[in-house]
Simulated scan of single mutants.
Amino acid sequence: MSDTVVLSKLLHIRETEKVQAQKAYQQSMDCFEKSATQLYQLLKKKEVAEEIYEESLQQTTTLDKLKEQFTYLEKLNDMIVELQKDVQRARAEMEAKQSNLTEAHVETKKFEKIIERRKKQKNDANEKMEKAVMDEISMYQFLNYKNR
């Protein structure tokens, strides 16, 4: 039974690692969602700004206003490019954390299976020994009964 105690301690350590991996994955997923939401909001702003710019081109407006709108669109494009990089970094980090979580889950399952097999082997050995003892007792009783 001592071998399963050691394995149980290792399993506990692996479960702790798995919980930590789950927390890290959740944090990275939250970070990714936050970055992706910011990017989405910025893209919506750009779309609205482009519509306003297109409408301004169709109407008579001052050159300064067109310049201002064009500059705003360029700023939005620059911000979008930066946010896209952030989103890609966050996605890569999230995928790495997910991989770590999967690995931790697999390791935990391995130890659970090993412990389960060892306990089953021990139970089988105990049952076999009990059957052998019962057979021996039955044999003695039979021989004692015959000798009477």
Score class of each variant (00 low, 15 high):
Thr4Asp: 02
Thr4Ile: 11
Ser8Phe: 02
Ser8Trp: 04
Ser8Cys: 04
Ser8Ile: 04
Lys9Phe: 10
Leu10Glu: 12
Leu10Phe: 09
Ile13Tyr: 09
Glu15Met: 14
Val19Asp: 05
Gln20Ser: 10
Ala21Asn: 02
Lys23Pro: 00
Lys23Arg: 14
Ala24Lys: 14
Ala24Met: 13
Gln26Val: 11
Gln26Thr: 12
Gln26Glu: 14
Gln27Met: 11
Met29Ser: 15
Met29Trp: 14
Met29Leu: 15
Asp30Lys: 11
Asp30Leu: 12
Phe32Lys: 00
Ser35Lys: 03
Tyr40Ser: 13
Tyr40Glu: 12
Leu42Gln: 00
Lys44Ala: 13
Lys44Thr: 12
Lys44Trp: 13
Glu47Trp: 02
Ala49His: 02
Glu50His: 06
Ile52Gly: 02
Glu54Arg: 15
Glu54Ala: 15
Glu55His: 03
Glu55Cys: 05
Glu55Met: 06
Ser56Trp: 01
Leu57Val: 10
Leu57Thr: 09
Thr60Phe: 08
Thr60Tyr: 07
Thr61Arg: 14
Leu63Asp: 13
Lys65Leu: 14
Lys65Pro: 01
Leu66Pro: 02
Glu68Val: 10
Gln69Ile: 04
Gln69His: 07
Thr71Asp: 08
Thr71His: 08
Tyr72His: 12
Leu73Trp: 01
Glu74Pro: 00
Glu74Arg: 06
Leu76Ala: 03
Asn77Met: 08
Asn77Gly: 06
Asp78Arg: 10
Asp78Trp: 01
Met79Ala: 14
Gln84Ile: 01
Asp86Tyr: 05
Gln88Asn: 07
Arg89Asp: 03
Arg89His: 11
Arg89Asn: 13
Ala90Met: 05
Arg91Val: 01
Met94Arg: 10
Met94Ile: 04
Met94Val: 09
Glu95Leu: 15
Glu95Ser: 15
Ala96Lys: 13
Ala96Met: 08
Lys97Glu: 04
Ser99Asp: 11
Asn100Lys: 06
Leu101Arg: 05
Leu101Ala: 03
Glu103His: 06
Glu103Asp: 06
Ala104Cys: 14
Ala104Pro: 01
His105Asn: 09
His105Phe: 06
His105Pro: 01
Glu107Lys: 12
Thr108Tyr: 01
Thr108Gln: 05
Phe111Asp: 08
Lys113Tyr: 02
Lys113Cys: 02
Ile114Glu: 08
Ile115Cys: 05
Ile115Tyr: 00
Glu116Trp: 05
Arg117Ser: 10
Arg117Asp: 05
Lys119Tyr: 02
Lys120Gly: 04
Lys120Trp: 01
Lys122Ile: 06
Ala125Gly: 00
Ala125Asp: 05
Ala125Asn: 06
Lys128Ile: 14
Glu130Thr: 10
Glu130Met: 15
Glu130Leu: 15
Lys131Pro: 00
Ala132Val: 05
Ala132Lys: 07
Met134Cys: 11
Asp135Val: 07
Asp135Leu: 13
Asp135Gly: 07
Glu136Thr: 13
Ile137Phe: 12
Met139Gly: 13
Tyr140His: 09
Gln141Pro: 04
Gln141Ala: 15
Phe142Thr: 15
Phe142Pro: 01
Asn144Val: 07
Lys146Ala: 13
Asn147Gln: 14
